[in-house]
Design a protein around this nucleic acid. Structure first.
Lengths: 106, 106
DNA sequence: TTAATGAGATACCATATGGTATCATGTCAA
DNA sequence: TTGACATGATACCATATGGTATCTCATTAA
């Protein structure tokens, strides 16, 4: 398996990082903008962004003295690819899965 | 989101645990059987199985003095549910995603 | 009954992780 | 030029994590 698979799974393992991804899905943000939404220091948020970048889930682009963080949905590919391996089980137990999803949504 | 979401993502974050899930997709296994396939102690494997169980990704059933570990595909539901949030981006960038998946498969 | 065996429980260790504080650097604006 | 500001970098801390060793318990087989 590629290293990206591990890096992506690791990046997704933290709830703060998953929240950041959702925020970035709405709009690109600077580090300061992301930090404003969390009760932690900018340095801590910066660390999370580095992990997300290592996982290929975001891209960072310099714009003057700012750094624009952008969601990179393609970075989820290794994760989806790994999960696809279990598709055959979902065929068998699709009903149970759907029920579980609906329950989780409640 | 439910606690199961966090527990499931955390369980998937370790490569050993992902390997265990793939093994269990082929057949149910006792702790000893799983341990035989890894270069680590039974106690370490047992810890991983506990994390997988906490994440709802496997079920454990006692049979005599053995414990049968079984894959629970439905436990992936919270993960899939979370990932579904990004479906709208995949619509936009489906080609890039497919390319990324194919690249990851190589 | 008595070992042998599969698993659970606990203590312990090294390192990774998530966080802070602090200082340095580059860039924008007056 | 000179601050002010967004970010980078480093050192440091507490706790989580992945691992081992060891002991105990329950069950199976001789």
């Amino acid at each position: 398996m590629t290293d990206q698979t591990q890096n992506a799974f690791r990046a997704l393992a933290d709830p703060t990082r998953r929240d950041i991804l959702r925020m970035l899905s709405a709009q690109d943000m600077t580090i300061a903008q992301v930090s404003d939404r969390f009760d932690m220091t900018r340095a801590a948020v910066k660390k999370h962004l580095t992990v997300l970048s290592d996982g290929g889930l975001i891209t960072v682009e310099a714009r003057g003295r700012e750094r624009i963080n952008t969601l990179n949905p393609a970075g989820l590919a290794p994760v989806l690819n790994w999960l696809e391996y279990f598709d055959c089980f979902w065929d068998d137990r699709l009903d149970a899965l759907k029920t579980a999803i609906e329950k989780d949504l409640q």
